[in-house]
Design a protein around this nucleic acid. Structure first.
Lengths: 230, 230
DNA sequence: ATCATACTACGACCATAGCCGAAGTGTTGA
DNA sequence: TCAACACTTCGGCTATGGTCGTAGTATGAT
């Protein structure tokens, strides 16, 4: 086999705890400074600098200078996809002890996945939309029915303008905590953006956790009949 | 971040050259013995044994005993998907020197990817099918037109019977060597199987390389107007 | 029975690479 | 101009883990 070593190189790069933490922190698509990343990784700035240089060298990260700061972000959605795919494997490969702290709970409930919503809330939304006939679950992606197009238009998302972009329209993205699919792609991103604009969801700075506001709970219930656990 | 370490664990497992070689060799979905895997990895049997134990422990591989042999295979398509996703990242992260040996050439030309065809030949087929209007390229998968259904039926593949299976129907699978999509899923597998049955393609034992027979060249040209480079 | 084969367990060796302290460059602000 | 800050480079320490030799168990062939 010839490609093994190249795969190994990339996987080994992700396979260091400090770097994996950094990449995880960048999964929501935002850019963080080297110092922030050093913090989430739990290493000193000089160690972090080395890691970041390697990730950049491998084209997994891109960097923008801004004054004396250097902002790092994922080089593209393929990187996020690879990390998600590894997450899935890591999840099922672990029947052993796995403590779940409060922070973990929040992440399970609602979080960002690159630029769309993931977690219990995301899965609940998808399930309800399928139930209502708004979404049709395909093999690798979703399709939106005419009823779905109307409902989303009411909500403030223009579905048709999202098609035919370079990125996937409505990717079926496997949720690592729920082991069920949620919506990624252009539609997933647009939906999350609209929820934020409505004040239904708030993304916390420095974390992938997403807060569902009271207005959000009410809105999801009233508009779509989605009830969330307390 | 809470999931970083778990991701790192799984990625590190893939991130060793010997293990990556083994996993690559298993990408076509077949089962290989520990000795065969030691060979493709270029390590001694006792080293291979340790690696295989780790991969099994992590639920990436499953093992079947058969007499004094132990056959290892990928634990599921998620594993293959994760490795493919890493392949894509590894590919674009490498603008540096990358020698291509003859074996590499054969792999680039035609190989198996889990259980369907990949490489130049696979991409040429897809491009021609799209040109003929047989296939419609979606975001994450393909759809087959009525004309395509007829043409494939002529060729010996019953398209309709492949839909609605648990596995994806016609996954749009990114080809790491060509950087273009080829057909995966149930349709991809059925097409490869039919080509083998026709004597158009021959899979070599112990390798992912696929040989295109003279009959195959003629058939592809005559039936579909696909010309392959010498 | 005896031998060969397939695989595993243990132990020792050693290289890779992660880590931090110290010292450097470049940028901002006082 | 000086100091604080963000980040990088270098060098040395250390530990993790991949490697193989030796030795063991199970299975199959002669």
């Amino acid at each position: 086999m010839i490609e093994g070593p190249y795969i190994a190189e990339a996987a080994a790069l992700i396979g260091d705890p400090a770097r994996a933490n950094m990449l995880s922190a960048l999964m929501d698509g935002r850019a963080l400074t080297a110092t922030e990343l050093a913090h989430v990784a739990g290493v000193t700035p000089q160690t972090a600098s080395g890691h970041l240089a390697k990730l950049k060298e491998a084209n997994m990260l891109v960097v923008e200078r801004q004054g004396r700061h250097r902002y790092f972000r994922l080089a593209g959605p393929e990187i996020a996809q690879a990390i998600e795919a590894i997450s899935v494997v890591a999840q099922q490969g672990a029947p052993r002890h796995r403590p779940t702290g409060p922070r973990d709970e929040a992440m399970r409930f609602a979080r960002t996945c690159y630029d769309h919503l993931a977690g219990q809330v995301a899965v609940a939304i998808v399930e309800r939309f399928v139930e209502l006939g708004y979404l049709v679950e395909g093999d690798d992606d979703f399709d939106v029915s005419d009823a779905g197009i109307l409902a989303l238009k009411d909500f403030g998302v223009e579905v048709e303008s999202l098609r035919g972009q370079r990125r996937a329209f409505a990717r079926r993205c496997l949720d690592w905590s729920e082991r069920r699919a949620h919506i990624g792609g252009a539609l997933g991103a647009a939906f999350l953006a609209r929820c934020e604009a409505q004040g239904w969801l708030k993304t916390k700075a420095g974390s992938r956790s997403v807060l569902v506001t009271d207005a959000g709970r009410k809105g999801l219930s009233k508009s779509f009949g989605i009830g969330l656990p307390a």
